[in-house]
Write a protein that binds this DNA or RNA. Structure first.
Lengths: 183, 183
DNA sequence: TCGCGCATGTAAGTTGTTACATGATTTA
DNA sequence: TAAATCATGTAACAACTTACATGCGCGA
């Protein structure tokens, strides 16, 4: 239900094509909302039919035309209305933690390999977020309220990666302890 | 695809009914995997057909019989095999952060109400996790490896709630600043 | 020349949510 | 006596994933 609102919120920031949205969801909004291009194109068509979006065709040479989407008045109203409703927490589904629940079926070295891989991944993601922060939000006091809110969204991503990394260290310590005690 | 493995991992710990699994996913494993009872019953039937689980009928008076599920050898093999595959990160989809991206359409007081509500929610969840930790994992050195891994899963939940709460304070500060500057 | 970025989609299948359905027992 | 817990499911729908499909331009 809320891919719709993620799209509305993204287009509220500025008009964009399906391709732009796909890129944004994968990069700048990676810690906010995840969606594949297939999902996005489908949703854009549907929302346009429902009158929430307006499309502008931007012809290009030797490439498919860009379809630039922007919010209609109905779209803005729908988004504003949704913003007043209180949201539940998103469900948690973490395969890595599932692994821990069955982890005694494999050797600790195998778990170590996995946590190491994930840690690298989180590290990279954190670096990416920090780059975005440095580039767009380096002077938070001087920035309009709208961007401060976006900055806060990014801050959640940063904190969450930091938390993951600290946890990874805890896991590594336990695994090392176990590996030593077995040898 | 991995509800299947969440179920296998949960049943690997101990045999259980659909009802038990539903309760566990909602409480003790809340930070690991989320699933409704409808999904769980459907999956249990399917997995039994596929030969991954065995069912034992436990008759009861004046209540539907309990169906106690346990892993078959094929189920254990399937789980063990999955554990060696490296897992991707779960996708992020957070309506609260979407709200921040459209947040300039509503007044900051409304956002404040929402973040306050969420903060309470996180606070309760954190308390719950800490209770579980105190009850089951208070002497980590003396506990078998299997339980230490479960404890680590819980630790991730604890850290993540702590991180959310710290972030909430950051949000509240920004919103307060904005509310003052507007009045 | 091979892969990546740009730019759009369709189709099939899996997973997850919401609504409906039943009924006894325990607790406040 | 009303609500929560125990205990199981079915059906319809919505959301998400994976595979397939096309084709140009640019840089290594």
């Amino acid at each position: 239900m809320s891919l719709k609102f993620a799209v509305l919120a993204a287009l509220h920031e500025q008009p964009a094509t399906g391709y732009d949205l796909t890129r944004n969801f994968r990069t700048r909004m990676a810690n906010v909302w995840n969606a594949s291009h297939q999902q996005i194109y489908r949703e854009l068509s549907k929302m346009t039919e429902e009158g929430l979006l307006e499309v502008e065709d931007v012809p290009q040479d030797s490439r498919p035309d860009r379809k630039l989407y922007r919010l209609s008045d109905a779209g803005i109203a729908d988004l504003a209305n949704w913003l007043t409703e209180s949201q539940g927490r998103p469900p948690t589904r973490d395969p890595l933690l599932v692994k821990l629940f069955g982890g005694d079926l494999v050797d600790p070295e195998s778990l170590m390999a996995e946590i190491t891989r994930q840690r690298q991944n989180w590290r990279q993601e954190l670096d990416r977020y920090r780059d975005i922060e440095a580039e767009y939000f380096s002077a938070p006091e001087q920035v309009p309220f709208r961007f401060r809110l976006q900055h806060l969204a990014l801050r959640k991503g940063i904190r969450s990666m930091e938390s993951n990394l600290a946890w990874a260290d805890e896991v590594v310590a336990v695994l090392n302890h176990e590996i030593k005690s077995r040898s």
